[in-house]
């Protein structure tokens, strides 16, 4: 028996030992490893994204003055319109605060909005996610909803130092409740990402649609967040029902496919709505050593 063969035998034994150690190892070890390698790669992601920004900057710099003048003229118009809107919004906000004070009900879902650029997208049949350029240092916490204007993009699934991972609406790990427009009784339906097929558009699934739900005719069936779950504010658009509502094959209700509100693979910038207080979801996701359940009771 030569050295090579001996080494081969030893390597298999070493492998078995390593697998054993890994399996019996604590979750802290797993987390640590994962976090280390994630942070190791983070700078590269940052650099590429910043490089993209730089390229865009130089591209803009090369524009002619005429173009810039035209653009700034357009912007000024939009600005004026928006300013008007801000005024009316202020009134509404004041009214809202007054009513809340009267009702002695302070909002439980005050969000801090963090705008973040998308660095990269990653999708397979089993997950669809994006990586954004804001992380723990920017105050982002796991479980926070991610939106673009009034559309739901997804939800933060993991937070690193300077970058975060976001599960898209179409990812099977995403789930939330919704109302369908035209349902006067406002019965909740269940939206969850669907394991997609490669080379075909990603979809989410809407289930538990009541049998007697009649979609409004002549317009797309919009799916809106309920605001009941304490994560998403109410009335955000999750998407539209795609291809009609059909009877479920296994259960006694209807199901439908959901086309996400925005082309999730094209999106460049998103807003993360970070709740002021940690949600139950966040507390449960946190490593048990850090936050004890009882502390919040």
């Amino acid at each position: 028996m030569n050295n090579h063969q001996k080494g081969a035998k030893a390597s298999y034994i070493a492998l078995a030992v390593f697998i054993l150690i890994w399996i019996s190892g604590t979750s802290a070890l797993h987390r640590f490893t994962k976090e280390t390698f994630a942070e190791f790669q983070a700078p590269a992601l940052q650099i590429v994204s910043k490089g993209g920004d730089l390229a865009r900057y130089w591209e803009l710099k090369s524009r002619s003055n005429e173009e810039l003048i035209a653009a700034s003229r357009d912007l000024a118009r939009i600005n004026a319109a928006l300013e008007l809107r801000i005024h009316s919004m202020d009134d509404i906000r004041r009214e809202n605060t007054r009513l809340r004070e009267n009702a002695r009900y302070t909002a439980n879902s005050e969000f801090l909005t963090v705008v973040a650029r998308v660095i990269s997208r990653d999708s397979s049949s089993w997950w669809q996610k994006i990586i954004i350029r804001k992380g723990r240092t920017d105050g982002i916490r796991p479980g926070s909803p991610v939106v673009f204007s009034n559309r739901v993009i997804g939800r933060v699934s993991a937070v690193h130092l300077n970058i975060s991972e976001v599960d898209l609406v179409t990812s099977p790990t995403f789930r939330c409740t919704a109302f369908l427009i035209g349902d006067e009784k406002r019965r909740i339906v269940y939206v969850r990402g669907d394991a997609a097929n490669s080379l075909s558009p990603n979809k989410a699934k809407v289930t538990a649609i009541p049998i007697d739900y009649n979609p409004p005719t002549g317009q797309p069936i919009k799916v809106l967040t309920t605001g009941l779950g304490g994560v998403f504010p109410s009335g955000l658009i999750l998407g539209e029902v795609d291809g009609g509502i059909r009877m479920s094959t296994d259960d006694n209700y209807k199901v439908a496919d959901l086309n996400p509100a925005k082309d999730l693979n094209m999106i460049e910038e998103v807003s993360v709505l970070v709740p002021q207080y940690p949600t139950a979801h966040e507390i449960l996701l946190a490593p048990s050593e850090k936050i004890k359940l009882e502390e919040f009771k």
């Binding site: 479980g143 269940y190 304490g230 209700y253």
Partner: peptide, 24 residues
Amino acid sequence: ADRSVARFIEQFPVDGPITIESDM
């Protein structure tokens, strides 16, 4: 009454041994 459902669906961690099922 639906709030309990919504809270569970939106806040309980997805992967794990606890699941939500629905029927009529």
